[in-house]
């Protein structure tokens, strides 16, 4: 598609010279904000209900110092929780995927644990660790490690029997098979799960900050809300979206860098 557009750039009018696929995310974002602005204007919404985007951006500028500080705090708790989730998720995933028995035994437990809404755990974490950074980090961790575990374990548990046979016929031990096949093979699953996990980690940290912290975007938004400063609430949401997109893009990039081979080949053969 790109090639066709770029055939003779100078000869074409402006509209045809733009790579619309690349431009699409920006075009659509701008369109969304435009539609939002027009909707607010058309319905004459009071800014305490739905502030227009221009008003939200104004709030971002006006409250930049606290927004920046709290954004960094949220980014910090989220990333820390996420990193713990990566380490623990990888370890638990490898452990679960190690044998069929462990897989069968622990899988239902994990599913049960995952079904618990993590918000419900925040009060317990507060009892144990007090309010502040620790519960936020732990909530981010608890909510985001499950997809990592499941993906790593799945990667290990789905080694092709023929590959395993070839290695076993050479006298390979379980450890050899895991190191040579299982772990490399589960890496695309692992890196793929990071995108999901980082998004969930934001959910966890913000939820915890909202109910049990004096810092972070979650806390900032809940106090702004109690003062009916709705533009500031939306400014917080906007920052969250920006951080979420940035971290997601980072994870997607890491995934691509680390497991380029998986995009080229069908893993099935």
């Amino acid at each position: 598609m790109t090639e066709i557009v770029k055939l003779s750039p100078s000869a074409k009018p402006l509209m045809q010279r733009i790579d619309w696929v690349k431009a699409a995310p920006f075009v659509y974002t701008i369109a969304l904000f435009l539609a939002w602005e027009l909707l607010v204007l058309a319905l004459a919404m009071p800014q305490t209900v739905l502030p227009a985007p221009t008003r939200v951006f104004q709030a971002v500028v006006q409250y930049w110092s606290p927004i920046w500080k709290n954004s960094l705090q949220t980014l910090y708790t989220t990333t820390l929780g996420f990193i713990i989730a990566v380490v623990a998720g990888l370890a638990i995933g490898l452990f679960i995927g190690w044998s069929k028995t462990i897989y069968a035994g622990l899988y239902p437990l994990m599913v049960g644990f995952n079904a618990i809404p993590k918000v419900a755990l925040v009060p317990i974490l507060v009892i144990w660790f007090g309010i502040g950074t620790v519960p936020a980090v732990l909530t981010a961790f608890l909510i985001s490690f499950f997809p990592i575990v499941v993906n790593v374990a799945t990667g290990l548990a789905t080694i092709e029997p023929e590959t395993e046979d070839v290695l076993r016929a050479l006298g390979a031990r379980k450890m050899d098979i895991m190191l040579k096949v299982g772990i490399p093979r589960s890496m695309p699953y692992f890196f793929g799960s990071l995108k999901i996990a980082i998004t969930l980690a934001f959910v966890g940290s913000v939820v915890s900050e909202t109910v049990a912290s004096n810092y972070g975007l979650g806390n900032m938004m809940s106090s702004a809300q109690s003062q009916f400063n709705v533009p500031l609430v939306f400014a917080g949401l906007l920052m969250l979206a920006v951080e979420g997109i940035a971290m997601y893009a980072l994870m997607a990039w890491v995934e691509k860098r680390m497991t380029g081979w998986a995009h080229r080949s069908t893993m099935a053969n």
Binding site: E160, E162, T163, D165, V166, A169, K180, V181, P184, R185, M187, T259, W261, A262, R264, S265, M267, N269
Partner: peptide, 12 residues
């Protein structure tokens, strides 16, 4: 040494 119909080469 074993070889199957399916080559089972490791793609990485």
């Amino acid at each position: 040494g074993m070889a199957f119909q399916n080559p089972t080469m490791l793609p990485w």
